[in-house]
Write a protein that binds this DNA or RNA. Structure first.
Lengths: 206, 206
DNA sequence: ATTATCTATAGATCTATAGATAATGC
DNA sequence: ATTATCTATAGATCTATAGATAATGC
């Protein structure tokens, strides 16, 4: 009954790093802070991960994998196109809801550290490309059938991303500027989820 | 014919700070770097602005003012509701296009430095509240007339923001991951502008 | 023996200020 | 006299590593 947990120090360091990097980004988080949060000394952080940059890269990769695979989950089941898209949008939204600081982490790092973009490319290379292609083909069929207007898959993906991501990017603004508490934000998020689905689906009508 | 410019050192410092803060955010920009960029020594930055934080605040306020006033420009002229909204969306998009790093700057600072949100509150307090109220009233009339479905003004604003902002937030990703050059991005941006207008307007249909 | 953890510290920033010197305004 | 600009530096980080000590695995 150790209570707090039987995590190894290494795991505790990763946990602390994840929490802090997600909250404040790379630049504003120090290895000393991570160590304090993990309950060890600062040298140990470097013992396990050598450099702050490598530690960050570890977290970043992990998170980006969650992000991408989760998004691509809804597969080729025999469901009508519109219904499948609806589920994809909702799954994306739910994933963001469960990882609210992810969009901030990604944008922050991809913008301030273009070198990091390489690691996205790697993860984007394999699975997602396939799923994207499949989505493209299904879309083309619908366009050919005349059930969907002529629109590029990139435009659909971008719309979904935009509408979903900003709900969580602006969370601190809702909190501080509009004085929303968790309940109020919950209500907003639930409404936006429906709204976003409706908007994207409506935008496909011929 | 001094060539380079007749700006005062103070102005040069502000210019350099603006450029660097917009590019890398607060944390990753040092006063030494700003000084170098402005062609003076680092102490002078502090002579004029006392602290790095105050310098940042100056830039931030300036930019947020541009952001807000530009957005609220399209006023009460006698134009049909839908046409007016279209123009607002396009004006917002164009403003972002002319200040591409603004969304990043805002999000970055509002998320990592909640204290900064106070300065947004101040600027958001006066003019925008009025314009927002006016927009709300016009919207209500349309809903009453039955030309627009029942939707909150916040939802419309959020949709516009989301769709427009992400185009520019993702610029570095388009550049690096998809290998887009300026011409390719220009094409994408022009298409998204139309797309965003169309989506928002379509989402209002009863 | 090897791995995990700690203490201590070198070396690299970086912010902010003190104090000297040059430029400008009356 | 006042304002602008510079040099120099104190003091506060912060990263990374060296080297000592404790814990663990055979």
């Amino acid at each position: 009954m150790t209570g707090v947990s039987d995590l190894t120090k290494e795991q505790k360091i990763m946990q602390a790093a994840e929490r802090l990097f997600l909250e404040k980004g790379f630049a504003l988080t120090s290895t000393g802070e991570i160590a304090k949060d993990a309950g060890c000394n600062q040298a140990l952080v470097h013992y396990y991960f050598r450099t702050k940059d490598r530690l960050f890269e570890t977290i970043f990769q992990k998170k980006i994998t969650v992000f991408i695979t989760d998004f691509m989950q809804i597969g080729g089941k025999r469901i009508p196109f519109e219904e499948k898209l609806r589920r994809k949008i909702e799954a994306h939204f739910d994933m963001l809801d469960a990882n609210r600081q992810l969009p901030f982490l990604f944008l922050n790092e991809l913008i301030t550290n273009p070198a990091r973009i390489a690691s996205v490319k790697e993860n984007f290379g394999v699975l997602p490309a396939k799923v994207y292609r499949q989505f493209s083909e299904e879309l083309e069929k619908e366009i050919a059938k005349g059930t969907v207007r002529n629109i590029s898959p990139l435009d659909i993906v971008l719309s979904v991303f935009s509408l979903n991501i900003v709900v969580f990017l602006m969370l601190p603004v809702f909190r501080e500027v509009f004085g929303m508490d968790e309940a109020a934000f919950r209500e907003l998020a639930d409404r936006r989820k429906k709204e976003n689905v409706a908007m994207v689906l409506a935008s496909l009508r011929p």
